[in-house]
Simulated scan of single mutants.
Amino acid sequence: MIGTQNPGVVEGSVVVDDDRVIDPRLFRNILGHFPTGVVAVTAIDADGRPVGMAVGSFTSVSLEPPLVAFLPDKSSTTFPKILAAQRFCANVLGDDQQHVCRSLSRKGDDKFADVDWTPAPSGMPRILGSLAWIDCEIDAVHHAGDHYIVVGRVHHLELDTPESPLIFFQGGYGGFAATDTSA
């Protein structure tokens, strides 16, 4: 519900200010109309095992110095392992890598059972078949509501294949085909 006057405490809603409430389902539904790319954020945990998570919140931040960011949920059980590593590799998934996204989105410790990878220069998992990979060191972590904003300083990056990216839109996955704008 949006625009409710003096709502008090409303179950399941977020109070924006003293006189407005945003229904979380409406918020999620409306923002679901904005397509996002899917990135696998990977690291090596303290036991030397690969860990990773799929995120739809990845962005470039700065050219000088080269910085990127992703926004993990504070309830994530994988992010503390990535934070402990102090490094991560952001793998831009292709439209044929929905299986990687599903593997890294499930609960449990063996998310990499069906994911082929090789070490990036930092040793973090670089997922084979990804469109690109960005090897980073964690530069800063900021609190942002029920998420963190994790800023990574880029040390290495490479475009592996200029194919179609995996896109998440309105609860589903797909690809993207660019049109020729030179005409």
Rank of each mutant, 00 (worst) to 15 (best):
M1E: 00
I2P: 00
I2W: 12
G3Q: 07
T4G: 08
T4E: 14
N6R: 11
G8I: 03
V10M: 13
E11P: 06
E11Y: 07
G12L: 12
V14L: 15
V15Y: 01
V16A: 15
D17N: 15
R20H: 15
I22Y: 14
I30S: 00
L31M: 15
F34A: 13
P35R: 02
T36H: 06
V38S: 00
A40K: 07
A40L: 10
V41M: 13
V41W: 09
V41G: 11
T42W: 06
A43E: 04
I44S: 03
D47T: 12
G48Y: 05
R49D: 15
P50N: 06
V51W: 13
M53T: 08
M53V: 13
A54E: 10
A54V: 12
V55G: 09
S57H: 06
F58P: 07
T59G: 12
S60K: 01
L63Q: 14
L67W: 08
L67S: 02
L67Q: 04
L67P: 04
A69E: 11
T77D: 14
F79V: 01
F79A: 01
K81V: 00
I82F: 09
L83N: 10
A85Y: 09
R87M: 14
R87L: 13
F88M: 03
A90D: 08
V92C: 01
D95K: 00
D95M: 00
Q98M: 02
L104Q: 06
R106A: 15
R106F: 08
R106W: 06
K111P: 05
F112G: 05
A113P: 03
P119V: 05
G123C: 11
M124V: 11
P125W: 03
G129I: 14
G129Y: 13
S130F: 11
S130H: 09
L131I: 15
I134F: 10
D135T: 05
E137C: 03
D139Q: 12
D139N: 11
H142F: 15
H143T: 13
H143G: 06
A144P: 06
G145E: 09
H147D: 12
Y148R: 04
I149F: 02
V150M: 05
V151K: 00
V151S: 01
H156F: 04
E158I: 01
L159V: 15
P165M: 10
P165T: 09
I167H: 05
F168K: 01
F169C: 09
Q170Y: 02
Q170P: 01
G171C: 06
G171L: 05
G174C: 03
G175H: 04
G175S: 04
D180R: 08
S182N: 06
